[in-house]
């Protein structure tokens, strides 16, 4: 009895909703989109979202309204993503390796597969950074010194279980060195420690090299090819270490969001990425664009997961 009543009421409602969403694709986006960053203002996740903001407005005529939901290293925001309305007007930034490593450490309220990631738009490649007056001129200098003084070479980096930390562990393994990793709260604090000579080097990002170009030197970058902003800095691959890594940033939607809207949103972000001016601005800040769209996401995530999980086990951040 009750179920029939429910069905009678629900059927037209669902139909109406479907019509609404069908209508929505035609002109999506019709209004401003709320873009939640699960970190505080001023960090790289914020800055890259802010880079997208004006381009979105210019291309599609609607605002991207950035707001913040920090806490638990992003976990608080991601745990709440699927409670948001899946109408295409609520989207959230996601970061790798965070969304892969965190749920494996403890129950943080979400699983990697819960997150409907629809686009990965850039990554910040890992890099070994030293100050301009450092004794290490090349990566080989550093390796030689580390081999003679096991444990004495100190690196600052942002957090544990992060791109920086996993890269350091992988590097130590490949190069046969033993170095000390000192985790700081965020890249800003880790750069400050480097510039103040509290540590000998930093596992940082190419963006650090761009921002502090007058005070630091990059020894190697973890990319397939050299970064256009740093044509003189070799990749790890050139030097014989198979490390291509960094912090990837993308956009996810609540998993109740219809497939057509996901695809549409993915193509919108793709159009921003294809913009030459956007590319130039991002590369000038040391970022590297990647264009992983909704179709290619599953394969991409699967590939990344393997690498991160192996490194995280090696680093002892997951059991």
């Amino acid at each position: 009895m009750l179920t029939t009543v429910k069905r009678v009421i629900l059927a037209p409602l669902t139909a109406a909703l479907m019509l609404l969403s069908a209508g929505a694709i035609a002109e999506y986006p019709e209004k401003a989109i709320s873009y939640v960053i699960p970190f505080g203002p001023g960090g790289e996740s914020d800055i890259t979202a802010r880079h997208q903001q004006p381009f979105f407005k210019k291309k599609f005529g609607k605002d991207l309204v950035v707001s913040y939901k920090p806490g638990g290293g992003g976990a608080v925001g991601w745990a709440q993503l699927n409670d948001m309305p899946g109408d295409g007007y609520n989207i959230m930034g996601v970061n790798l390796p965070h969304i892969i490593v965190k749920p494996l450490q403890k129950d943080v309220g979400f699983k990697t597969n819960d997150l409907a990631v629809i686009y990965m738009f850039h990554y910040t490649p890992d890099a070994v950074v030293v100050t301009t007056d450092s004794q290490f001129k090349t990566l080989q200098d550093l390796i030689d010194h580390a081999k003679k003084n096991p444990g004495k070479v100190t690196f600052s980096g942002s957090g544990k279980g992060t791109a920086n930390h996993l890269a350091q562990v992988t590097f130590d393994k490949l190069a046969g060195t033993k170095t000390t990793y000192v985790a700081f709260k965020g890249t800003g604090a880790s750069v400050t420690a480097l510039l103040g000579n509290q540590v000998m080097g930093q596992w940082g990002y190419t963006s650090v090299g761009a921002k502090h170009s007058d005070k630091v030197r990059l020894l190697a970058v973890a990319m397939e090819q050299r970064h256009p902003r740093f044509p003189d800095v070799p990749t790890f691959k050139e030097l014989g270490f198979d490390i291509v890594s960094g912090a990837y940033r993308g956009i996810a939607v609540p998993n109740s969001t219809p497939e057509d809207i996901r695809a549409k949103l993915s193509s919108l972000i793709d159009q921003i990425n294809a913009d030459a001016e956007f590319k130039k601005k991002m590369e000038n800040d040391g970022f590297a664009l990647v264009n992983v769209d909704y179709k290619g996401m599953q394969a991409f995530m699967e590939e990344k997961r393997k690498g991160y999980v192996a490194a995280a086990k090696e680093a002892g951040v997951i059991k």
């Binding site: 806490g71 638990g72 608080v76 965190k102 129950d107 309220g109």
Partner: peptide, 18 residues
Amino acid sequence: EISADVRLTFDSQTLLGG
């Protein structure tokens, strides 16, 4: 903040963000 361990939440989601 730095070691990424989950501490003193006693498995409560409310406390996860600190």
